[in-house]
Design a protein around this nucleic acid. Structure first.
Length: 537
RNA sequence: GGUCCGGUAGCUCAGUCGGUUAGAGCAGGGGACUCAUAAUCCCUUGGUCGGGGGUUCGAGUCCCUCCCGGACUACCA
């Protein structure tokens, strides 16, 4: 049964001048795992990712190559799409801020804010980083010797007349909003340490300029003042709204977006974004605009030695390196590792080949893969591939395994976006299966024909427990789970979930779904053990 | 400088309102087993809970202080 409330999850839109790398893939992967979990639950889910195209640097870079800004943006947006497609991300749409619909909506929003008085014209003077299209605070400017932190070029003293957003007047409303969410036990920002940072800073926030001059026509003009362009960050934040501000998608927005971001862009998402929304909802026609459910700011992947990953250190994971992992271990392995061992939380996580391999072998090969293999193999061997009956009535008597507790824990962990622990809930179940087989020794009983009914019971219950664990693992390792479902003759799950379809976690995780007599088969190993140093014979 | 988060086993972490011998997974050691992917299962080594002080009948947990790591922010300019 599909739950009534829809679910909306987003990633940031990625800067189109960048080449895709592990950071982009990680955030998108998190959103994908969560989106798949909600679809598995039967929830009407919308998952959005995309690219941010309007920055004068994009136009500059294009010009260097003799391309129009649009051509260059098209080309690089394509690179992101390609990477995400190859990683089988299930986003429902892909944001291009240069698209007509987005631009039109953003200018409507800004127009409404101009009319409401929350956006006004003013004068701003300060140190300007032309590369970043950003004003730099006096202290930061001094700290970096009045040069750009990013490209080292000198900052320019710039005074311009532009449009300001009355951010300062939202201090109290925003703090009130944060308090309200804390009281309702649904904190707006996760992890909590990040929320503390933001709250302290909100108390001191000032109005901010939201337009720029001289971006050469690449961007969205301020309504009624085409000499001014809407600041790219404002343009970008609005993507979350523009792409679902249509009659058939507005309900996703109203369900309350969950925004996955990296910690460096927290301020924009945790302060400026909700303030803009509070301002917008006061405008006629925008009363339906509510605030997001949550902003989840994850940390970074670092190298095993704790260094930041960067091209210059040659420990940078670009798409080619990631595809190397996919080729070696499979896409599921990459998904599982990133989602369960990643820097969700306030500290960074290490990405090392040896850790990756260890997690692959222990969790995926030795635990899930091996357990599925041994159970199905015994059914083939002792019952000729027909799923045996269980002596205890699966519907009226208490099963050996407390699978409903595993599932309850799993759901709790996903509610808190504790992906590592959600995966652990499923693995716990699989370890129970292995321990039960060890205790009951079906392979030994099978030598005595009179004990076959008992053997059958052990195998039925084991297969059933593994089936439930595989349903739980699907958001992480969809391909392996779908292959296992084929072994168990449960491919109807696969069909239900195909092409962003929905599943039914509640009924699929109920004990006793496997039908005795069903034909069981086995394909190649779900996760062949990875040998570090394979010796010739 | 101000503020915030963290420091628990070799590694990654859990530890509720202060309450019994501080836990899990992995890694290490020993044993068992043969259905399975050299797998699995059982047992086991390993911790002055960052240091010091305090409160308490009792502190990993509360208070003070210091050290270390990280973050946000400010200023000195």
């Amino acid at each position: 049964m599909a739950s009534a409330t829809p679910f909306y999850v987003t990633t940031p839109i990625y800067y189109v001048n960048d080449r895709p790398h592990l950071g982009h893939v990680y955030t998108t992967m998190l959103a994908d795992v969560v989106a798949r979990y909600y679809r598995l639950k039967g929830t009407d889910t919308f998952f959005l990712t995309g690219v941010d195209e309007h920055a004068s640097k994009v136009a500059d870079r294009a010009a260097e190559r003799g391309l129009s800004a649009q051509q260059w943006a098209d080309q690089n947006a394509g690179a992101f799409c390609e990477v995400f497609d190859r990683l089988e991300m299930t986003n429902n749409d892909f944001v291009r801020t240069s698209g007509a619909r987005h631009k039109q909506r953003v200018s409507q929003y800004v127009e409404a804010l101009l009319e409401s008085g929350d956006v006004y014209q003013g004068e701003y003077e300060g140190w300007y980083d032309t590369g970043q299209e950003e004003y730099v605070t006096e202290s930061k400017a001094h700290q970096n010797d009045y040069k750009s932190e990013v490209n080292g070029k000198p900052l320019v003293r710039k005074a311009e007349r532009n449009y300001f957003f009355k951010l300062a007047s939202y201090r109290e409303p925003l703090l009130g909003f944060y308090d309200d969410r804390i009281r309702r036990q649904r904190p707006f920002v996760q992890p909590q340490a990040r929320q503390n940072e933001v709250v302290n800073r909100i108390k001191e926030m000032e109005d901010i300029p939201i337009s720029r001059t001289g971006s050469g026509g690449w961007g969205i003009p301020v309504p009624g003042d085409p000499a001014q362009t809407i600041y790219v960050w404002i343009d970008a934040l609005f993507n979350y709204l523009t792409y679902v501000d249509t009659n058939d998608r507005r309900h996703y927005w109203q369900a309350g977006a969950v925004h996955f971001i990296a910690k460096d862009i927290l301020w924009f998402h945790a302060a400026i974004w909700p303030a803009l929304l509070l301002a917008l909802r006061k405008c006629p026609g925008y009363e339906w605009v509510n605030l997001p459910q949550q902003v989840y700011a994850h940390s970074y992947w670092v190298s095993a030695s704790g260094q930041k990953m960067s091209k210059s250190l040659a420990n940078f994971l670009d798409p080619e390196a990631l595809h190397g992992y996919v080729n070696e271990f499979g896409l599921d392995a990459l998904r599982y590792f990133l989602a369960t061992r990643g820097p969700l939380g306030v500290s960074d996580s290490a990405f090392s080949p040896s850790l990756f391999m260890e997690v692959y072998n222990t969790d995926l090969a030795n635990t899930f893969g091996n357990s599925c293999s041994r159970v199905v193999n015994m059914i083939l061997k002792y019952f000729d591939g027909h799923l045996p009956e269980c002596l205890v009535n699966v519907h009226t008597e208490k099963p050996t395994f407390a699978a409903s507790e595993w599932v309850a824990d799993y759901i709790r962990q996903f509610n808190d976006l504790e992906l590592g622990r959600a995966g652990e809930a499923a693995l716990f179940g699989i370890r129970e299966v292995d321990a039960h087989i060890e205790r009951t020794q079906p392979f030994r009983m099978a030598k005595d024909a009179s004990l076959l009914p008992q053997v059958g019971s052990v195998l039925y219950e084991s297969a059933e427990a593994l089936r439930i664990a595989s349903v739980m693992l699907w958001p992480f390792i969809p391909d392996a789970c779908e292959r296992f479902w084929r072994w168990l003759d449960c491919s109807h799950y696969t069909e239900a979930l195909a092409d962003t379809g929905v599943g039914d976690l509640q009924s699929w995780s109920r004990w006793g779904q496997l039908v005795p007599g069903a034909r069981v088969q086995k394909g190649h190993s779900l996760f062949p053990r990875y040998l570090v140093d394979p010796r010739p014979n």
